[in-house]
Amino acid sequence: MARLTASVATRLLMLVVVLFVISISVFLLVHLLPGNPAYAILGPGATPAGVERVVHELGLNKPLTTQYLSWFGRAVRGNLGNSYLTHQPVGATIGHAFPVDLELVILSQVIAFAIAIPMAVAAARHQGKWIDRTFTAGSFGMLSMPPFVIGVPLLLALAVTAHLFPATGYIPIYKEFLTNLHEMLLPSITLAIGSVAVYYRLLRSDLISTLQEEFVTLARSKGLSDRAVMYRHALRPSTIPLVTATAINVGSLLGGAVIVEYIFDLPGMGLLLVNGINSRDYMMVQGVILTLATAFVIINFLADILYRVIDPRVRHA
């Protein structure tokens, strides 16, 4: 237990360091631009009086450290400035967009597990047979289909040609539950494809090595069916590596979500970011990057801790 506490403490320290580095980098982004950051904040329509006011309000004429501290203070309280395009607070806009990403990521992972687990179980049961070879070859294909490659063909085949899904459109899940699911399904499938390959490959080799264990032989010798052995005994110890892999995957999912939202026109963080970049809405870009980077780091931290807590071998290592 003491070891666990110590390792959690180390991680916590690292987390603080990483968050500090992230906040400084994001803060400095605006200062990397040539010229006065006030122009970046106000956008192309900046007036001299407006610049004067922003410089005064944000203390842009004070030393960088002072500026950073006051910026950090505001950011922690959710004040990320205003979008110069919409004049809305960036924090509130992000608040509306974040649930879209959350739903997209969760739905895609549910789909990925629903496909990858039966595939891996079938492949492990028939190791080396045609079904195993087909699935393994298929997983290679899926590994080579990032959202920007597969998204457009899927849109063409399933939405434009077959009319199975709407091509674009979004209604929040709390307003129209079924319509929302219908709209989110194709984007989630696009995002899920890469994850299927990752989970399938991990689980397949994990299961194959588990099946050589003595406890599996025992379960078999009790007369349990293949299926029961698989789902009741062999699959269970693979939960931990799957949790780990999911956590590691979060980074690529956040990146993938940006592309998917761009393709399917979903009003999430990714679309905010890309639109913000294209319209030089720097406050929006800064806010979105800060939020996503923080979320990513915290999710990884929690997964790391969770995995230490649930796996006794790591705990005692």
Binding site: M142, L143, S144, M145, P146, P147, F148, L191, I193, G194, S195, V196, A197, V198, R201, L202, A245, I248, N249, G251, S252, L253, L254, G255, G256, A257, V258, I259, V260
Partner: peptide, 13 residues
């Protein structure tokens, strides 16, 4: 590398 761009490809697998 975390599958830049969300390919789901990462050194992990």
């Amino acid at each position: 590398v975390g599958g830049v761009g969300g390919a789901g490809i990462s050194l992990t697998d």
